[in-house]
């Protein structure tokens, strides 16, 4: 027996996990950059409330986050019913629902990394940009954003890895449906619940380790490259 013998179901779970994690990261990124900028650069009423809200998924038990999503976005929940009736959008028990739960769970990590990198930027460079005729939008796009790039990459990669491993909130919100919401983690969990399933579970565990390590290495490499580029190497 070779080390990796993946069944079609395994492949389905792997590809689904990658798709969910990737879409969750890409969709969360603009919001993550916006909220991180807001928290790093603006003082406004309710700032600590927003900060707490963003960090909530980090401290709440994931099952609780999943449950909260279920009672707001579920088919019979207020927001969920509104979206279904008016736009025909249903996320409960769909892979798109898993994107939402993974995105929410990964969001605090993403915001933290980006916020730190924005706070580290010398604001006087933005002042210099404004004396050179750049309004706020342009100075953000041409100075702040490029200088924050290593942090943005790190934040995106952290979020991707977190989304890939998401289990509690996802299984609570969208259940564990093979081919629709069964990610690697959920598939491993299912396999460990059936007698003699641990050998098959090990296959997926190895895949999960490979993907996570690859994501980590890729993020290190990208962040280093971005930093080097910023400083003209």
């Amino acid at each position: 027996m070779s080390v990796l013998e993946l069944t079609p179901q395994d492949w389905t779970a792997i590809l689904l996990s990658l798709r969910i994690a990737l879409v969750a990261t890409v969709v969360a990124l603009p919001f993550g950059i916006a909220i991180a900028t807001l928290l790093a650069r603006k003082d406004f009423w309710g700032k600590s409330l927003l900060d707490a809200l963003v960090h909530l998924p980090l401290v709440l038990p994931p099952v609780v986050t999943g449950y909260l999503l279920l009672i707001t976005l579920g088919r019979n929940a207020p927001v969920g019913a509104f979206l279904a009736d008016h736009f025909g959008i249903v996320v409960a028990f769909r892979w798109t629902g898993a994107v939402i739960s993974c995105g929410v769970m990964a969001f605090p990590l993403m915001v933290r990394a980006i916020r730190l990198s924005i706070e580290a930027i010398d604001r006087r460079l933005e002042d210099a940009a404004s004396t050179l005729g750049a309004n706020r939008t342009w100075s953000f796009a041409t100075v702040t954003l490029p200088l924050a790039l290593p942090g943005i990459i790190a934040g995106a990669m952290l979020a991707f890895a977190r989304a890939l491993g998401e289990f509690g909130a996802t299984i609570t919100f969208v259940s564990n449906i093979p081919g629709e919401t069964q990610t690697i983690s959920a598939a491993i969990y299912t396999l460990t619940q059936i007698p003699g399933g641990d050998a098959a579970a090990l296959q997926l565990v190895i895949v999960a380790v490979i993907i996570s390590v690859a994501a980590l290495v890729a993020s290190e490499w990208l962040a280093r490259r971005a930093t080097a580029r910023l400083h003209g190497a």
Partner: peptide, 21 residues
Amino acid sequence: PAWRRRIGCVFQEGRLFPHLS
């Protein structure tokens, strides 16, 4: 606003953009 004043500034520390040539 500063960006509409068209007043050039040279600061003590230069404040060149490190990510641009």
